[in-house]
Design a protein around this nucleic acid. Structure first.
Lengths: 109, 109
DNA sequence: TCGTAATATTGCAATATTACGATTAATATG
DNA sequence: CATATTAATCGTAATATTGCAATATTACGA
């Protein structure tokens, strides 16, 4: 149905899935990488940088804001975005807990 | 349009996005966690374990197989799945490279 | 071979996502 | 104040995803 049955999964599974889904589009990865690369906030130039329409970039920024990975502040006519370090760190812990569950698993197939 | 413009992104960005997208559904996380938990291959009991219809589970297994994170082998009428450790390790390297890019970034917003 | 069990595939409906043009709201600047 | 600039939002089209029933396939045992 295109609708995920979140109620049959744990809160942890749903949270991790939501974070992973956010990383599941190259434009959002490009936005995050650009933010890390310039080591500063980015004000406006993401549209030329990435090459999607302004409305589309705005949607991706909203998606990143919704999971808390970035935050924005208004600076005149522009809006500046930067990584939310606290959330980024928290996300890393969640991701690592999942990625590092593979101790001693055996390859039986 | 529901279609991602992959051609404007790097191969690395598209590859990471594809992996992340696979983790972007709680059912697929549940399948992977079950595989790690039992430390063996899983043959058939995923449907009762997870609580989605057999057709749906089969689809999620196919998605996991397509990115190479699991592999299956036929054992009679059943099919056994297990983690593909090589791919899992490779995926971890890719994910970690992305997650650990945050050295010295400053919180300017 | 026939029936059964397990899994995959197909077809479909509902919903989500991606993308963009147009519009709107807010703030600068002349 | 009028106009330009910037970004969010709206509306819409195209495509993708999720989920399941029905069906197909495959392997096994009687």
């Amino acid at each position: 149905m295109g609708i995920t049955k979140t109620e049959i999964f744990t809160a942890e599974q749903n949270q991790l899935a939501a974070l992973a889904k956010t990383f599941g589009h190259p434009a959002r990865l490009a936005i995050l990488q650009h933010l890390f690369l310039i080591k500063d906030c980015v004000c406006g130039d993401l549209v030329e940088e990435i090459g999607l329409a302004q409305a589309t970039i705005s949607q991706h920024l909203t998606a990143l804001k919704n999971v808390g990975l970035i935050k924005g502040s208004i600076a005149g006519t522009r809006v500046c975005y930067c990584i939310n370090i606290e959330k980024w760190t928290e996300m890393k812990h969640i991701m690592n807990a999942f990625l590092n569950q593979d101790v001693n698993s055996n390859d039986c197939c």
